[in-house]
Amino acid sequence: MSDDVVAVETAEADIPDPVVGVLAARLGEALGDGILAWEDSFGTLVIRVKPDSWAPAAEFAKGELECDYLSFISGIDWQPVTRPDGQEGSDLSAPVQPTEMTFGVTGSAGRFQVFGHVQSTSRHWGVTIKSDVDETDPRIASWVAIYPGADWHERECWEMYGIVFDGHPSLRNLYLPGGFEGHPLRKDFPLLAREVKPWPGLVDVEPMPGVVDAEGGE
């Protein structure tokens, strides 16, 4: 865990996968203070960059790190699900949600983040690049010029989170019909099925086979 690039070299020794450290170091050299944080998440490098470095990071990954393969681009909304009655705290109809806003492994400056995963087909490594997006005016540079396959992923992210990708040739709906209002994957967009029929509760959670006695159950 390190919050700045300087720590990269020192941290290299105690991470399980040396490749992750090397990749982080090379990205750090290229982007300088464009990198906010990085983490080795189960053997995959997760790196959080400033919005300005979002496109350069991809360019560097494709050019220097030989990450020629675009796996996905998507967004994430760190805010907990809004209750149907508009009050604070978790959505009662969704038993799985936390109550306060926390951020994942590399942290976040605000509610929205975009993240994408690129891989190398020859070197067999991969990098997950994250970047914060402003909540009031969510926009970030497009990767289409670097990875043409980003086209559909960014369209999906745009309609699901409302994040605008600058430089994308045609941001139009991919899944949803034209004129659809709202951004379904935002946490404040209600899952209507759950509103109509609230979560039935935890009694249905069946015990796993072979673990009857694991916690002194039945």
């Binding site: 998440s41 189960f42 995959t44 959670v205 796993m208």
Partner: peptide
């Protein structure tokens, strides 16, 4: 051998992020 490992009855997954392909 067995086909199941020991797992808790109610599965709670610790906080974290993972990418599996």
């Amino acid at each position: 051998g067995p086909v199941m490992a020991k797992v808790p009855r109610i599965i709670k997954v610790p906080a974290g992020e993972v990418w599996v392909e």
